[in-house]
Computed example of a mutant assay.
Amino acid sequence: MSSGPGAPSRPGEPRVLVRDRRVTWGLAFLPGGDALLTERESAEILRVTPRGEVDELGRIPGVVARGEGGLLGVAVSPTFLHDQYVYVYLTSASDNRIARFRHIGGVGKLETLVTGIPKGGNHNGGRLAFGPDRMLYASTGEAGQEEHSQDRESLGGKILRMTPDGRPAPGNPFGTLVWSYGHRNVQGLAWDGKGRMYATEFGQNRFDEVNRIEKGRNYGWPVVEGAGDDPKYTDPLVTWPTAEASPSGLAYTPGNLWAAALRGERLWQIPLENGRAGRPIAHFRNRFGRIRAVVPSPDGRSLWLTTDNGTADGIVVVPLR
Rank of each mutant, 00 (worst) to 15 (best):
D229I: 00
V54C: 02
I281W: 12
L81D: 08
D95G: 00
G108S: 08
W268F: 13
W304V: 07
E111P: 01
H148Q: 10
R212T: 06
A259Q: 12
R212E: 15
V238H: 04
G106L: 00
P132R: 10
F174C: 12
G226C: 07
M135P: 00
T24Q: 05
F101G: 04
R276E: 14
R47P: 12
V76K: 03
G188T: 09
E147N: 13
H103M: 15
A99G: 05
S9Q: 15
G73Y: 01
S297D: 04
G141L: 11
R152P: 02
V224T: 03
Y137N: 00
R290M: 11
G141D: 05
T200G: 03
F130H: 05
F80R: 01
D229E: 10
V316Q: 01
R21S: 04
R292D: 09
W191D: 10
E41C: 00
T200A: 07
G26V: 03
L72G: 01
I281T: 14
F174D: 10
P5W: 11
E41A: 03
W179M: 08
G314T: 02
I281M: 14
G289L: 04
R66V: 09
R66Y: 12
S77Q: 01
L17I: 07
P118V: 06
Q204C: 08
D229K: 14
E146F: 13
P173N: 10
P170F: 15
S302W: 01
V107C: 05
R66K: 15
V18F: 14
A282K: 15
P5I: 12
A227S: 14
G126T: 07
